[in-house]
């Protein structure tokens, strides 16, 4: 990994982070060095507890490190005060969380417009921006629904739209497909890849989903708080194409049929695999 890249949008050096439960230390990161260039679609992979989320939180100025430095867009975010970090996040970083984390009492468009209002844009303008991004993520017709009236995939699309609405340079996504079924997850990755290509927004995604890893422009593997491996431009077998109509928008009977078809396919595969093993 290069020591210093002049074009790095994210630059982490010798990052250490340890959590304490009472007097028990739980080391999360141990000397991480990382450079991400603008426009990259990077995936942080690794088992649960490997430090992926902690690294994302440090880069996202959500937590403080015990040691080391993080420069994002040339700014040392660990040296910033609390309010400075908040402003920095608002202007430069979009977040997509595993559990969608939308504001429950707001509709989809209000959720997206909220960040624009935080940036000081007027309510009307913010709503226009929200409508635009909801269309971009293919749920423009669901803008008036509240999160509890949307499926998981739709909620995560709202979260992506919210992350993009502030026009950030970087989007940090923490296990964005973990709560989605595989087909919806694939559609979401496809969408994020597409946005990455079209808008040039840098995506840093933590995930252990094989589909996400497949889509990565660069894959960084973490184990026990350290980077153990990294691949650039890994060969990407095409991920399953997204259908023109997102599955969550299909009528219930169709969705049920799809689900049953998938389940049947899985069961047959499993049985076939077992039979092969038995024959051997």
């Amino acid at each position: 990994m290069p020591d210093q890249t002049p074009t790095s949008i994210i630059k982490a050096r010798d990052l250490h982070k340890c959590y304490w439960v009472g007097t028990m230390p739980f080391p999360a990161l141990h000397g991480i060095n990382l450079d991400i260039e603008p426009g990259e679609f990077t995936v942080l992979a690794g088992r649960s507890g490997s430090g992926k989320s902690t690294l994302l939180n440090l880069i996202g100025a959500l937590e403080s490190a015990d040691n080391g430095s993080v420069e994002v867009l040339g700014e040392n975010i660990l040296a910033m005060g609390r309010d400075q970090r908040t402003r920095f996040r608002l202007q430069n970083i979009g977040f997509v969380f595993q559990a969608y984390n939308l504001i429950r009492v707001f509709s989809a468009r209000e959720n997206v417009a909220y960040v624009c209002q935080l940036q000081g844009k007027g309510r009307k303008k913010s709503m226009e921006i929200a409508d635009h991004w909801l269309h971009e993520v293919e749920i423009g017709h669901l803008g008036y629904r509240r999160p509890d009236q949307l499926s998981g995939g739709q909620q995560q699309r709202v979260a992506v739209a919210r992350a993009l609405a502030s026009e950030p340079k970087i989007i940090l996504a923490d296990e964005p497909t973990a709560n989605l079924d595989s087909m919806t997850g694939r559609r979401l990755i496809h969408l994020m890849q597409d946005l990455n290509r079209r808008l040039g927004t840098t995506f840093l995604i933590s995930s252990h989903d094989p589909d996400v890893k497949q889509a990565a422009g660069r894959l960084i593997k973490l184990a026990d708080g350290q980077i153990v491996d990294a691949w650039d431009n890994i060969p990407k077998p095409p991920i399953a194409p997204a259908s023109a109509c997102p599955v969550e928008n299909l009528p219930l009977t169709k969705r049920l049929r799809n689900y049953l078809r998938e389940a049947r396919k899985k069961a047959l595969n499993k049985r076939g695999h077992k039979m092969n093993e038995d024959q051997h």
Partner: peptide, 10 residues
Amino acid sequence: GVIVAIGTKR
């Protein structure tokens, strides 16, 4: 926590 994370001031 999420509201603060996405840029709401304290």
